[in-house]
Design a protein around this nucleic acid. Structure first.
Length: 150
DNA sequence: GCCAACGTTGGC
DNA sequence: GCCAACGTTGGC
């Protein structure tokens, strides 16, 4: 099983939204490297949920990959901010997964705390200029993150 | 293929 | 709001 980290701005979609909805399609990723990580996900993988661009950024929970190989529906929707006119139903450009809520971390594991506990080498999130919204987390590091939660 | 210009991300 | 870092675009 593999571990991942998924970023979301809580003003757009938060861990509380996922807890309420239970399941969601992780749509809107428009970066090829991030897309490739989404395509590498397997059912049963676990993903940390990260809140970005907010007062206290950090890991706020855990979710599970429930379904893979989903063509991101928002790429076909002209009314969506994620619409991509280069995509066709026959030849989609953007792929994603369905994830399910597992747990909310209370308290959250702030970026500040993560920087204290992990090195940039261990956690890509902490690397200078890291902007990827989907990234892998090494199993050993993931276990240590899980052990830190409340 | 190069690279300048531009847009976006995201912490602070 | 600032700005560094990064990705994408498009002229050449």
């Amino acid at each position: 099983m593999n571990y991942w980290l998924l970023k979301s701005e809580p003003g757009v979609f938060s861990i509380d939204d996922l807890e309420k909805e239970k399941v969601t399609i992780w749509d809107g990723v428009r970066n090829y490297q991030a897309r490739n990580f989404l395509r590498a996900m397997q059912v049963g993988d676990l993903a940390f949920f990260y809140h970005s661009s907010t007062g206290t950024p950090g890991i706020v929970g855990l979710c599970r990959v429930l379904e893979t190989g989903i063509a991101d529906p928002s790429q076909f929707d002209p009314g969506s901010p994620y619409f991509d006119s280069r995509s066709t139903v026959d030849n989609p450009r953007w792929w994603t997964v369905r994830v399910g809520f597992l747990e909310k971390f209370e308290p959250m594991l702030s970026l500040r705390l993560l920087r204290q506990k992990f090195s940039p080498d261990e956690l890509a999130l902490l690397r200078r200029g890291s902007r990827l919204s989907v990234m892998p987390v090494a199993a050993e590091v993931a276990q240590r993150i899980i052990a830190l939660r409340g």
